[in-house]
Design a protein around this nucleic acid. Structure first.
Lengths: 231, 231
DNA sequence: CTGACTTTGTGCGCGCGTTCACAAGCGCGT
DNA sequence: ACGCGCTTGTGAACGCGCGCACAAAGTCAG
């Protein structure tokens, strides 16, 4: 979020030249990674930027520029080595050593997240489930036993990512607990604006916001066709 | 996604001057709406751009510019009338006449979405639950009976929004069914790139992508602190 | 009525991200 | 060995969005 944290261009390794990868590029790296996994399972050894861009749903020029930000790992005239590219992107995303994820709030959404296969498939796995409701403590979901939220400091390790899937009213309190426990990366699903101290990365996913954006487009399309029909 | 669809600046009503609201602004309108609802329940009659921006977690200048894109509904020296602003934003988002939502895929995530209170609260409500698994047909979730996906054409009405919460393998097929039934706005939760014909709006929410982005930041922070400690 | 204060609405400059278009580089066939 | 075609990597232009800072406009006190 804060791009003023650069000033580190001098200490990068001489071989690699990934200095400051743009945020927009980082947001697309997971897409490339997923497409590459599919291609690898399909038996492709190499892939051109055109084909990979097609598979990831982006433009080929954008893809090449994105990949160029983390080094030149392609071969002109041939394309990119699929396996190598998977490794490079995984390393860039920090997925080589499995990241510990702590999920707080085992309601409907929390259950869905715990059972979501997309995490565990590649380097990401939920390590702990927490809830404030004693009635849910002890329940086993997706192979994990739900613990009381008081045990949060014990399940958090350095580099943990916190996921908040609680009701909106409890979200800020849980967020503060996470921060107090040393978590510096938080993903919030509660429909509320959270405040965190500097140095903590906070992302949010609001399901209803996405629907409202679609509603806007649908509404506008309806208005346009109505106007077009009358014109 | 495609900003080339403008060319309609001449047919807007003379009183209002909402010509082409920027996409970035549309994405924030739901935030403002939510903050306004909270303020309204708190008894506030009017609100200044500063206070509303604080509640929505954005800058005040950005908020004023956003609101100016859909007309001048504020009073200088006073602020914005909360009730009026709620109506204006709701109208802009097309929430005044409840939007019909059709959800396909009643797995973990589908269940969570069906039970998510954030939709029904303001103008958005799920109208139908569909699934391809006969074992799930007939089940009642959040007051709705799950129907077989074959009944999709009958539950879709003009202006419906389709939500895909199926496994990745079934997503494209379901997407095609939705498009064939006349749905022109689709929200996809499956971790796969879907292709839709022109004229159909497609948004996607990928839960694992968000986590991988956080993983990147966590990884980078760890690298920076390590480098800072050694320097 | 007047003047001072408050708040909106917006013109402008800046930086990021995207796209086009092309030069540089690599493999392959001859 | 050599040129031909394919693909990458990137320079440059463009457009969008953001933030600052200020003028316009309205309210309220006296």
């Amino acid at each position: 979020m804060d791009p003023s944290r650069l000033a580190t261009g001098a200490l990068r390794a001489p071989g690699r030249r990934r200095a400051n990868v743009p945020e927009a590029t980082v947001a697309r790296l997971p897409l490339y990674l997923r497409a590459l996994h599919v291609l690898a399972e399909d038996g492709h050894q190499t892939v051109s930027s055109e084909a990979l861009a097609e598979a990831a749903g982006v433009g080929s020029a954008k893809l090449r520029k994105d990949l160029s930000h983390l080094g030149s790992y392609g071969t002109r005239g041939v394309g990119y080595d699929v396996t190598n590219l998977v490794e490079q992107i995984s390393a860039e995303l920090g997925l080589e050593h499995r990241c510990s994820i702590v999920l707080v709030g085992v309601g409907n959404l929390g259950r869905a997240l715990a059972g979501y296969g997309g995490f565990a498939s590649r380097g990401l796995a939920i390590d702990a489930l927490l809830d404030a409701d004693q009635g849910r403590v002890g329940e086993v979901i997706a192979g994990l036993t739900v613990q009381h939220v008081e045990h949060l400091p014990q399940v958090v390790s350095t580099g943990s990512i916190g996921v908040i899937a609680t009701p909106a009213l409890a979200a800020q309190e849980v967020c503060d607990l996470l921060v107090a426990a040393g978590v510096t990366s938080i993903l919030n699903f509660a429909p509320i604006v959270l405040t965190v101290p500097d140095g903590v990365d906070l992302r949010k996913v609001d399901l209803s916001v996405e629907l409202q954006i679609l509603s806007f487009h649908e509404h506008r399309k309806a208005a346009l066709t109505a106007a077009g029909a009358s014109a």
